[in-house]
Computed example of a mutant assay.
Amino acid sequence: MNSSDVLATHLQELRRGTVVMAALAILGTPTYGYALLESLDRAGFAVDGNTLYPLLRRLEKQGLLVSEWNTEESRPRKFYRTSPEGRSILDDLLAEWRELHQSIEKLR
């Protein structure tokens, strides 16, 4: 395995862990799945739908997201938004992220 493959693998692992934070942050405003995929992509998080939709269901089951169907348009869409508990968890995750970053910087 060459160094670019090794880097790609580690970057994928790093991003996988940050997608939860990114989704919770974006979903402060109600958004449907495909629009969330586009927003994440524009922000530098290339996420596949086969990864995102199970994540959304898991976060909803954990109480971090709430959802509701919008049937006013010709095509019904399920909109997700971050719950109050999800916002609290996001704040905690971001604080931990900052502490980890500071710790790593101290090691360099």
Rank of each mutant, 00 (worst) to 15 (best):
I104W: 13
L90Q: 02
L55V: 06
D91V: 05
Q12S: 15
L93A: 05
R81M: 10
R87N: 10
V20Q: 10
K106T: 10
L94D: 05
A46H: 09
A22Q: 13
L27N: 01
L56N: 02
V19H: 04
M1A: 12
R42T: 11
K106W: 02
R77F: 06
E13M: 06
R81A: 12
Q102H: 12
T9W: 06
R42F: 08
A8C: 05
I89S: 07
L94N: 10
L94Q: 14
R77A: 02
R87A: 14
N2D: 15
N2T: 12
Y53H: 13
E38V: 11
R42Y: 06
P30L: 06
R77C: 02
F79G: 04
R77T: 01
L100M: 14
V19C: 00
E73C: 00
Q102G: 10
S83Q: 05
M1T: 09
N70T: 03
I26N: 00
V6S: 02
H101F: 13
S83R: 05
Q62L: 13
G63T: 10
S3K: 08
K61M: 07
L107N: 02
R15G: 07
R15D: 06
N50T: 10
I26Q: 03
E99H: 13
L94W: 08
L27D: 01
P54K: 04
R57E: 12
L94V: 14
E96G: 03
K78P: 00
H101M: 04
E99W: 00
L93V: 05
Y53E: 05
K61A: 15
Q12I: 00
E68F: 11
A46P: 00
L7D: 05
V6D: 06
R87V: 12
G63N: 12
R57S: 12
M21V: 01
E60S: 13
T29N: 10
L65V: 05
S3G: 00
M1G: 15
L100I: 12
A35Q: 14
E73G: 13
W69I: 03
Y34P: 02
P54T: 06
H101A: 15
L36A: 08
R87K: 14
W97R: 14
T31P: 01
S83C: 05
Q102T: 05
I89V: 15
K61Y: 08
A23N: 02
D48K: 12
S4K: 08
I26S: 01
N2V: 07
A43I: 00
S103L: 12
E105S: 07
A8H: 05
G28I: 00
L93F: 11
L40M: 05
A95W: 03
K106R: 15
S3A: 14
L59E: 05
I89H: 07
P54D: 11
G44H: 09
A46D: 09
R58C: 04
K106D: 10
D48A: 15
T71Q: 06
A25T: 06
A8Y: 00
L24P: 07
S88M: 11
K78F: 01
D5Y: 01
W97G: 02
F79W: 10
Q12W: 00
A22H: 06
